[in-house]
Design a protein around this nucleic acid. Structure first.
Lengths: 188, 188
DNA sequence: TCTGAAGACTTCAACACTAAAGTTAGAGCC
DNA sequence: GGCTCTAACTTTAGTGTTGAAGTCTTCAGA
């Protein structure tokens, strides 16, 4: 056994390329518009790969993708970086129950604090700690470097055009389904 | 109580728009390139909304998004629509353990069959049933209608350009991280 | 042909999320 | 001031996923 880079898969099935995938779908469903499908499939694949990449990066900081989402949401709220569990849950697309547990963990790790609101003792206030803010900043640095690198092959004009087209699509999805369920899945 | 459409939230926090979000990040992290961030954030938001939409649509067919992914993967394999659990897991970005359970469910629902390979009794063969193929077709019909509608505001030229740019980005992600972990999350 | 090693699942324990039920504080009414 | 109603969480039960350990075939060498 010299080094044999190939893990011995003689003619095993291969992960299809985008074009192969679209061709396969077309074989089974004639009405498919290949151009539309190409855009949509590329969008989906790109996003998934990016999420994997983000996950690896923030893991290096000792936090999970899920925790990073919470940090981002609290930071977006602006000073003093406070939100209630309910509001957090809504923005993150989680149930309040899941939010309770996530806050537990993050409070245990010192990323946030959880306190009763003194003015209205039904409410709870989740607040970003300094450590949490620092983690966010570190993650943001890594993410924006990665994103900058990702878009390297696009000229400023192309970047502008791409952003503009994506926002047009976004408007269309948001208009088409005005948040029927209530929750919005996740945030950016 | 007449009808009061507003659920009484006097000045509560709002879900930020894309531009507000980018402005907020910039306040905390000066080096951020707003154009890059706009593209990336729009990409993320768009994708999440789309996934919610897909989920609602296939739910109407009585299947989950997760099950639809399996149907798509088996269909992509081409006739006779067979793959092993391991290969399925790899393509779907799941652990083999999760795949075992998912196949259990789907076999119980009659969407796939699970059998031992007679030539190599270690291997298992998961095969799409006719019902599974029908479900796929119905889901595909709904999805492609939705996607067609989504892209309605884009001219054919724009669609082509958008697809081409997305594929350039995709190439860059795939080149940057050659599948370091092994699993690829999920498929389109 | 027997034995050891590798491969392909499956099983098990732990964790995260959802839906639904439970708890507790504030608000409105009499 | 006590009653009910609602809001904002938390708890509980059940599902789906991961990582690690276990089982069962097959293959390669002695």
């Amino acid at each position: 056994m010299a080094e044999t880079p190939e893990p011995a898969e003689p003619d095993g099935p291969q992960e299809p390329t985008l074009d192969e995938q679209i061709a396969a779908y077309q074989r089974e469903y004639r009405d498919l518009d290949p151009q539309v499908e190409k855009v949509v499939s590329a969008l989906g694949r790109l996003n998934r790969r990016m999420n994997v990449a983000y996950g690896r990066q923030v893991a290096a900081l000792g936090i999970s993708n899920a925790e990073w989402e919470v940090l981002k949401t609290l930071l977006l709220a602006g000073e003093p970086y406070r939100l209630g569990p309910g509001e957090l849950a809504k923005r993150l697309g989680l149930t309040p129950a899941a939010m309770t547990h996530r806050i537990d963990r993050m409070a245990g790790e010192g990323l946030v604090t959880r306190d009763r609101d003194e003015n209205n003792r039904v409410r709870v206030i989740v607040e970003l700690t300094d450590e949490g803010r620092t983690k966010w900043l570190e993650a943001m640095r890594m993410a924006s470097d990665f994103e900058e690198d990702l878009l390297q092959d696009l000229s400023p004009q192309e970047r502008g055009l791409l952003g503009e087209m994506l926002i047009r699509l976004l408007r269309r999805v948001e208009h088409a389904q005005p948040d029927a369920g209530g929750r919005l899945t996740d945030l950016d």
